[in-house]
Simulated assay, not measured.
Amino acid sequence: MTFIFAHRGSAGTHPENTMESFIAAEKSGAEGLELDVHLSKDGEIVVIHDETVDRTTNGKGFVHQLTVAELKELNASYKFKTFQSFIRSPKIPTLKEVFEWMRGNNLLCNIEMKNGKIMYPLLEEKVIQLIRDYRYEERIIISSFNHYSLVRCYQLAPELETAPLYSDGLYMPWIYAKAIHSKGLHPNFKAAPNMIIQEAMANGIAVRPYTVNKESDMERLIAIQCSAIITDYPEKAFKIRKKLSK
Results as ranks from 00 to 15, higher is better:
N146W: 08
E51W: 05
N203M: 07
N213I: 13
S182A: 15
I205D: 07
H147D: 00
E124W: 01
G32Y: 08
G29E: 12
Y78N: 15
K79G: 09
I140Y: 12
M102T: 02
V46M: 08
L221S: 09
W101D: 00
L33K: 08
K178G: 03
I222D: 09
V47H: 12
Q65P: 00
I222Y: 05
S21D: 04
L108F: 13
E138H: 14
R241C: 11
K91H: 13
H186P: 07
Q198W: 05
S10M: 08
Q198P: 01
I92K: 06
A200D: 03
E16W: 12
F99M: 09
L95S: 07
I87E: 15
V212N: 10
F80I: 12
I180M: 12
T18G: 12
L107V: 01
E97S: 04
R241W: 07
L33W: 14
S167C: 08
N188D: 15
G169Y: 14
R88P: 00
T18L: 06
K91M: 11
K246T: 14
S144W: 09
A192R: 04
S28I: 03
E112K: 02
A157D: 05
C109T: 10
E137F: 13
S182Y: 01
D42L: 09
P193R: 05
K81G: 01
Y154S: 00
K27W: 03
E124N: 07
Y134R: 12
I141R: 10
Y120E: 05
I180S: 04
S10N: 13
I118E: 00
S21I: 06
E235D: 15
Q129S: 14
A206T: 10
I4T: 12
F3G: 07
Y120T: 01
L108T: 01
M1I: 06
Y120P: 01
Y148N: 08
V63S: 04
V207E: 05
E215Y: 06
L122Q: 11
F238S: 04
D50G: 04
T67N: 04
